[in-house]
Structures are given as structure tokens and as C-alpha cells.
Design a binder for these strands. Structure first.
Lengths: 183, 183
DNA sequence: TCGTAATTTCAGGAATTACTGAAATTGTAT
DNA sequence: ATACAATTTCAGTAATTCCTGAAATTACGA
């Protein structure tokens, strides 16, 4: 039940990295612990493994659940709650993209759309409006694409990613001249 | 030289969003101001426009330059430094991806590689090691792909993104059954 | 329904991060 | 070289975020 040196290293790294994302150190550590654990863990296991206060663990688990990165279940004959990170790494990847998008991208898209709607275009703001709509369009293109490829099976996605820049070979010739030329 | 309501709105939003990323509110605001400004601005312009202290602006500009999101230049007959955000939004996108990768992804990849190298595989850590190598492989696949498509021209990239999940039509049939079927 | 185990909430304190003004440094024109 | 404008550094303080223990709430078995 104790954390091994390998796990320790992973957990500490994740704690530090967590700070660069929006999540704090202890939340990062809790997630890392659950990610590498084979068996689900209850809150006291986590307290014991990471040396955090019980209340901190409770709050951290809540946050991780709000990110859909951690799930809880009940074990028969035990009334405590057990937590685990989903198995499938593609699912994790997927959820991460979706949640970050929901929290960081969508509000910006909305703000840009609303602000541009209310702007009459021969104001002194022509330049600002142009820049904002460029940003809007790029974000929309990117998120639309993400939505679309999200439906692909992991194997298909892997194939496509390995293909890399070569996918452009399949495009109409007009643009194909820009393809990475690795043949 | 004063910020319009449209700009104001954009700047304030970016300030708030900045906090969700690793950058703080004022750095977000400075970037937003430069992004929507047609002409380069000197530090005092920024102080005046955003109501920050001179030293704070100096530090913020330094940080933005370290992200390569802001450039400086000198105007003839004026010894002050003038700052601006690059014009080309694809370049901005590109730089953002590269910098975030350098700061957030690469250190994790390195840690995973190093930790796994030093691990003998019949330890009690088999599960943790497996999970860590899954993470490693997914990150490597994704960043390798990013490196590769980064070389494509914006037009090509736009075409590909609009194609969305339909690119998988071009793959070998074995995997093509997983393609989004939008025909 | 009651008793107790499990979990959550939350006010206050600890730790971290952000910001400022003053002083130091750098750069440039004379 | 000197004078002064522009910029940066940095120590101290303000603001924010994080974490804890105690109290409250919830969930369950008898």
C-alpha cells in the first residue's frame, strides 16, 4: 500500500507540473497516485500515501471528479468510497481536451462572438475587430476539427498521427505542393 | 491612444483567462492590448492604458518576450522601446504550441523516460511502469505529430482541418471502417 | 430511530504569488 | 566623459491561493 520510489517520482513530478496547469500541487499528486495505482483507493489511503490532511484530500477528489478524471465506486461490504482514474488512456486524453476546452476556450469564443456582434464596423475599432475575428475564426476552426476527429477510433487516430504531414498528399493538388516532402 | 470599449472588453477577458493558464492577470492584459493594437506601444503607453505600475509592465513585457509572443523594436528618432504582437495569427498559434510544449510536455516526457529506464521490470511496480509507458507513448505520438504538421502551410492545414474526421477515408480499409460516416 | 463511521464544509492561518516604489543600471546624445 | 532618459532590479507589502482542524452534515447498519 506504500508508494514505491518509481511512483514517488511520478507523483512528485505531477505535483510540480500541476501548478503550471490550473490545478494545484496536491490535486496533481492525488491524480498521479490514482493513475499509477492498480487498485482503487479510499480517501484515507490517499491521506496516508501522500501525507495530506483528510479535508484537503476530500477537496482534491471533488475537483478531480469535476474534471471527470477520477471516478468513485463502492466495494461490497465496505461503506467507504473508492477512487480510481479511468483505465483507457485515450479516454483520459479525450476528457482532458474536452474539459480544458469547456473551461478555457468556449468562454473566449463566446466573448469574441458577443463583442463583435455589438460592434458597428465603421467605428475606430476596425483593426481591433479584425484581429478579434481572426482569433475567433482560428479557434472555431480548431475546436470544430477537434470535435470531428474525437469521433475516430484510437487506432484510426494513431494511424493518422503517424502519417503526420503526409496526409496532405491526399489533398487537391493546389495545396499539395505545401506538403512535407519526405519521399 | 485610449482603449475603446471593445478593446476594454477583450483586455479584461484575457486578463481573467490568463489566470487559468500559467500567466497572471496583468500579463494577460498587456498581451491583449498589444494584440489588438494597430501600432506598436511603448511601456508608458501601456502603463497609461492599463493603469499598472511601470515596473510591473516591465516585468510583464519580459515574460511575454520569453514566450516569444511579443517583439520589440525601435522607432527612428525615439529612444524608447516599442512593443507589438506578431501579425500572423498562425505564427502566434504555432509559437504558443511550441512554448507550452517546451515548458509543460517535454519535462514530463524526460521524467517518464528516465524513470522507466532505471526500473527493472519485474519489480512490484509492473503496473505503474505500464501506465507510465502508456502515457509516454501517447505524448510522444502527439508531439511527434505536432512537429510534423507544423511544417505545413496554413492553407494546407486549414484544408485538412475542414476535412475533419473524413481524412480517415484515405487510410487503408482495415482502419477505414472506423471513419466518421458523414457521406 | 439512534449511534457511529464517512465525508464535507468552512473559518482562519500558512504559503505563495503579484505588485509597487525606490534605487540601480543601461543606453544615448552631446 | 557627462547628463539625463529609459529600463530593470529588488526588497517590502498586498493580494491571492492553499491547506488545516474543528464542526457540521450525510449515509448506513442495527
Amino acid at each position: 500500500m506504500n508508494v514505491s520510489p518509481l511512483q514517488q517520482r511520478f507523483i512528485l513530478h505531477f505535483g510540480e507540473m500541476g501548478s503550471r496547469w490550473g490545478i494545484n500541487r496536491t490535486v496533481g499528486q492525488i491524480y498521479a497516485l490514482l493513475y499509477v495505482s492498480e487498485q482503487p483507493k479510499n480517501a484515507d489511503d490517499i491521506v496516508q500515501a501522500l501525507g495530506l490532511s483528510r479535508s484537503n484530500v476530500s477537496m482534491g477528489l471533488k475537483e478531480l471528479q469535476s474534471w471527470r478524471l477520477v471516478r468513485s465506486q463502492h466495494l461490497p461490504g465496505d461503506r467507504r468510497e473508492y477512487f480510481s482514474a479511468p483505465e483507457d488512456i485515450w479516454e483520459i486524453f479525450h476528457v482532458l481536451v474536452e474539459e480544458r476546452r469547456k473551461r478555457e476556450i468556449d468562454p473566449t469564443l463566446t466573448m469574441l462572438r458577443d463583442a463583435l456582434m455589438e460592434t458597428n464596423l465603421d467605428s475606430a475599432d476596425r483593426h481591433a475587430a479584425k484581429r478579434m475575428s481572426e482569433m475567433h475564426d482560428l479557434i472555431e476552426l480548431t475546436t470544430g476539427w477537434l470535435d470531428d476527429v474525437k469521433g475516430l477510433a484510437p487506432k484510426t487516430l494513431t494511424q493518422l498521427m503517424k502519417l503526420g504531414g503526409n496526409v496532405s498528399k491526399f489533398l487537391k493538388p493546389r495545396a499539395a505542393k505545401n506538403a512535407a516532402d519526405s519521399s
